[in-house]
């Protein structure tokens, strides 16, 4: 290696905030991948300076200074209304509500439902890792039947606790025309990034609510090694949570 050779730099999205990397998420955490997909989508759309990123409480709060984008930390479940407030006040901003399954499907479910029904022109990115990571791995609305968590030590019993929330299916059913709804997975990065990009484009076009659930991984609380981590995501989760687009706006040809 000669001295003249430029120092090799990691290939991070331009919209990642570099000075606090490595980030605070655990080894193997899916948030890094989702935020990489989001970062690249922001870069490709050139919206770094007019995006506002809001993060929930739970592991997603660790993303509060993740991006080189104006960002705000809210309360558990309340990111959607904060982003709605910003968007309604300043429609020119591109608002991104970033949350986990607990924030979007449990404590803040009414906000998810009603923002979808009102077709709020915001983008929600919801990371589904089937448990409450930050608080130590309790059952989440998305915990799979039989899955062991700290509060379902014998496995989730749907008779007792119901079945996992299928978020995009629900949102697609209640959102009106103009909404964009998809479920991606960190196991298919390119597709996930494509979904997130479309969701942002949908907001930029002012068509309506856009919602992407990202199937993600939580090796720390799942207590899985790398192989089992991928296996749980790809074999178990996708069985219950099909990946794909659930609602795509009909864009009229000019």
């Amino acid at each position: 290696m000669s001295a003249a050779q430029p120092v090799i730099q990691p290939k991070m999205p331009k919209s990642w905030y570099k000075s606090n990397k490595p980030h605070l998420f655990c080894p193997g955490c899916g948030h890094g991948m989702v935020l990489k997909a989001l970062g690249e989508a922001i870069d490709e759309l050139g919206i770094q300076s007019k995006a506002v990123f809001g993060c929930d409480i739970g592991c997603s709060l660790l993303a509060w200074n993740f991006l080189d984008v104006d960002s705000t930390q809210t309360h558990h479940g309340r990111t959607t209304p904060v982003m709605v407030g910003i968007k309604r006040s300043r429609p020119e901003l591109i608002t991104i509500a970033y949350m986990g399954d607990g924030g979007g499907y449990a404590i803040g479910s009414q906000h998810t439902v009603n923002a979808a029904i009102r077709n709020e022109k915001i983008t929600v990115i919801l990371v589904n890792n089937t448990n409450y990571g930050m608080t130590g791995g309790q059952m989440a609305p998305t915990t799979l039947p039989g899955q062991i968590t700290e509060t379902t030590p014998f496995g989730r019993d749907p008779e007792e606790t119901g079945y996992p929330t299928r978020g995009p299916e629900m949102v697609a059913a209640i959102a009106s025309e103009g909404a964009y709804v998809a479920r991606g997975t960190v196991a298919n990065f390119r597709q996930l990034k494509g979904f997130i990009k479309k969701a942002l484009e949908n907001q930029i076009a002012g068509r309506g609510f856009s919602f992407v659930e990202a199937l993600s991984v939580c090796p720390t609380n799942w207590r899985t090694n790398a192989r089992d981590t991928w296996a749980f995501l790809e074999d178990k989760m996708t069985q219950y949570f099909p990946v794909g687009e659930f609602k795509v706006p009909q864009v009229k040809e000019e």
């Binding site: 809001g54 705000t72 209304p81 904060v82 709605v84 407030g85 309604r88 006040s89």
Partner: peptide, 9 residues
């Protein structure tokens, strides 16, 4: 919370 968002904006 929407009020909080509006204020931040």
């Amino acid at each position: 919370f929407t009020t909080c968002g509006g204020l931040q904006a």
